[in-house]
Design a protein around this nucleic acid. Structure first.
Lengths: 237, 237
DNA sequence: ATCGCAATTATACATATGTATAGACAATAG
DNA sequence: CTATTGTCTATACATATGTATAATTGCGAT
């Protein structure tokens, strides 16, 4: 079909619900009220990233389509898709840290902290909210700003893990060698492993989780015995 | 510029070098001789992936342009870019395994096996041949076939590492708990760490390498003491 | 020479993208 | 009411992509 003009947007006239007038907004300043918010665009993007779609490949038009707005309206909310992607990563990161950090501090009855945390991680792997996928899948592609955003979130994870590790090591009187390094190793390992198993069939996940538990134990045990060595070396001086 | 016809390829007439006739080829069957090979396309693709370009985002036309052929000629050599990407990964993987596996078996004078291997890894990080970048950067994006190709290479790494670990543990009489798991943990950790530091300025790499060494030692030490535990438990039965 | 055949190219088409421009729409302010 | 002012849409354009089709090119066989 030659000379086809660009497909217009043709808004769905499914507005009409007057209850949508959010009067709790501080003060409507002027002009037409926004029909869509940054959050709407974010969840549209979130809906598009599946097991086979990565944030860094989303196009502006695609997100706009999913959100039900005209392509150009996108610019009212973000300067470009990259900016969207970055805030997406940040939201996903903070949501996840809340969940997994919570699992780490909450003492689950009868389970070790390690196992509890990893199970919480695995739950997120199959959760409907694909936060984890976002962070795991694309640490290494996309724009510089995007990669840095992912890296930042991972560092946050590491830092929180580190303070928890230090706390626990004091409680158990089992000192850790270089806890910051331990936290980094565990975080990177778990995320890398997670990325490689996230497309596995569900029934293979428990085995993978078990492997993760062992791996983390190895790191912790190693760091403990390195601490022992360092101590005895000091004592022998 | 409306109605511009698609830019033609307009071959560079810089052939003319008759020495290019590779008479060592087994037997020219019939028809025009191929002016380009799969290898040429692969190295064209390799030239395109830099620190800010990932294989999975290469387009057919782009690779063809770089290789100096018309877009359609691409199809004579690969069914699509994905197929190119997969063989690219496979070549990079086998080249790398040769390099790093070599460093692991070759006993470097006065250096531990761990440190030697990691230094060899870091060398590849800054090598002109960007093999490592390929494998590290894109384990998690791209087509299913592509991801599986990357995963396959990582598993190869793990397996080779594993046999080396077993061998060394016997030599040193220091048994390892679940060496296959140890190999997997080390491999994934190193690649994940590598991906996150590959864009760092060169002078920060030694510190990162040092951290990697410690991380790997933690895993090894942990696996050794887990083996101790398992042994004493058995003895106490 | 000329015929056939494989490698390669030229042209074209449908489709997708980002974005510029201008106008329509809806709300508030006067 | 009208004016103003943000939000949103329609249209358009330049550009890029994958690929279908047909033509061209260069080589060996006849």
């Amino acid at each position: 079909m030659l000379f086809k003009k660009d497909q217009p947007y043709t808004a769905n006239n499914n507005m009409a619900d007057p209850a949508e007038q959010d009067l709790s907004r501080a003060r409507a300043p002027q002009g037409r009220r926004a029909v869509i918010s940054q959050e709407d665009l974010i969840s549209a993007a979130l809906a598009l990233v599946g097991p086979h779609r990565s944030v860094s490949t989303l196009s502006l038009r695609e997100v706009a389509r999913e959100a039900g707005i005209a392509p150009n309206s996108f610019y009212r909310h973000f300067r470009d898709v990259d900016e969207l992607a970055v805030t997406l990563i940040e939201e996903a990161g903070s949501a996840l840290r809340k969940i997994i950090g919570g699992a780490r501090t909450r003492a689950i009855s009868g389970k070790s902290v390690v196992r509890g945390s990893i199970e919480s991680f695995m739950e997120q792997l199959t959760a409907d909210q694909r936060f984890l996928h976002l962070l795991m899948r694309e640490g290494t592609v996309g724009s510089e700003a995007f990669k840095q955003a992912v890296e930042r979130q991972l560092v946050f994870f590491e830092e929180e893990l580190c303070t928890d590790l230090v706390r626990l090591s004091k409680v158990n009187n089992r000192p850790l060698y270089q806890p910051a390094l331990v936290a980094k190793a565990i975080t990177r390992l778990i995320f890398a492993q997670g990325a490689s198993i996230m497309d596995l069939p569900k029934d293979e996940l428990p085995k993978a989780a078990e492997q993760m538990v062992v791996m983390v134990r190895m790191i912790l045990l190693g760091a403990q015995s390195m601490s022992d060595q360092a101590t005895t070396e000091n004592e022998s001086n």
